[in-house]
Design a protein around this nucleic acid. Structure first.
Length: 290
DNA sequence: AGCACGCTCCGGGCGC
DNA sequence: TGCGCCCGGAGCGTG
């Protein structure tokens, strides 16, 4: 499950491999073609496949950038700029190879859905086992509304104040804190893993209502989120189930997680509890988190 | 208009 | 071995 740190790792790996390269053309899998023929928008969103394939042709990749859990692949042709927006979904992964057979893990190799042939001969490959990922070709970020509604980057100066302001809105203050910190319009890039961790380190029960948490405690929580995201970036992200960095690379943050998918609390050793909040499994220590 | 809710996309992995 | 069910980011349609 790639969250901000994992996406950051992918972007750091991709930059030296694809920035400055030119896309000759893109090939899409039979599955993508069949799904689109069936009226679905599997992986390629917002345009039909012909348009997508036509538009990326001969585009130069000028810059690869992370924003929240999105990867923005900035493109340029004839002095005109565009953005290829990518989301890894649950199981998306990028590979830069000379041949698809270099993708050694079968489950990624057999779910290759987009192959961008680069002018240097290499293949820039998007694989996605569950097809929750996204490739969206747009002129500018402002052309896709959800992207304009995202909270600031958590490392930005104004991010904490933005979080506090959002918490005061009626629609958020009645909700469980965990649901709110995982909302991309409140904090960017915090998913289940890092929400679970930060709530544990600040001893807040994930079900606690936003309005019943003091401002000081909210700031403490925000800082804990920033800290755990940074720690994870430094450790290459958490490699859990289907997350891979570029070319199948792994991180080691999963070994440092204190609460996520734990059966016992590492502090008091009591059994942890799991509840479902907004459809997501939320693990906490009933003894340490109040 | 703005919000809440449910649905959808899917295959791997698990329990039985 | 095989079947059925569960899981989950995020956008979107509905009420």
């Amino acid at each position: 499950m790639p969250e901000l740190p994992e996406v950051e790792g992918v972007v750091r790996d991709l930059k030296p491999l694809v920035e400055g390269k030119v896309i000759e053309h893109v090939l899409l899998s039979d599955v993508v073609h069949m799904s689109h023929a069936d009226g679905k928008q599997t992986i390629v969103k917002g345009t039909d496949l012909d348009t997508f394939q036509l538009m990326v042709r001969d585009m130069k990749i000028t810059k690869v950038e992370r924003r929240a859990k999105y990867i923005f692949i900035h493109l340029m042709k004839n002095e005109e700029s565009f953005v290829l927006v990518n989301h890894l979904g649950m199981t998306g992964a990028w590979f830069v190879v000379d041949d698809v057979t270099e993708i050694t893990e079968e489950k990624f190799r057999k779910h290759v859905h987009a192959i961008f042939k680069l002018r240097n001969g290499q293949l820039f490959v998007f694989s996605d086992i569950r097809r929750f990922g996204e490739l969206r070709f747009i002129k500018a970020i402002s052309d896709h509304k959800p992207l304009t509604l995202m909270a600031p980057e958590p490392f930005d100066e104004d991010a904490c104040d933005f979080f506090l302001a959002q918490c005061k809105k009626p629609k958020y203050e009645q909700k469980a804190i965990k649901e709110v910190i995982m909302d991309g319009q409140v904090i960017s890039g915090c998913g289940n893993i890092y929400a679970t961790e930060s709530l544990f380190t600040t001893k807040i029960r994930p079900t606690k209502k936003v309005k019943s948490i003091s401002k000081a405690k909210k700031i403490e929580l925000f800082n804990a989120i920033v800290d755990v995201l940074k720690e994870s970036i430094e450790n290459g992200g958490s490699t859990i189930s289907d997350y891979r960095s570029v070319n199948g690379g792994a991180g080691s943050m999963q070994d440092r997680l204190k609460m996520y998918s734990r059966k016992n609390c590492p502090v008091c050793l009591k059994e942890t509890t799991s509840v479902v909040i907004a459809g997501r499994t939320s693990t906490y220590c009933p003894n340490c988190q109040k």
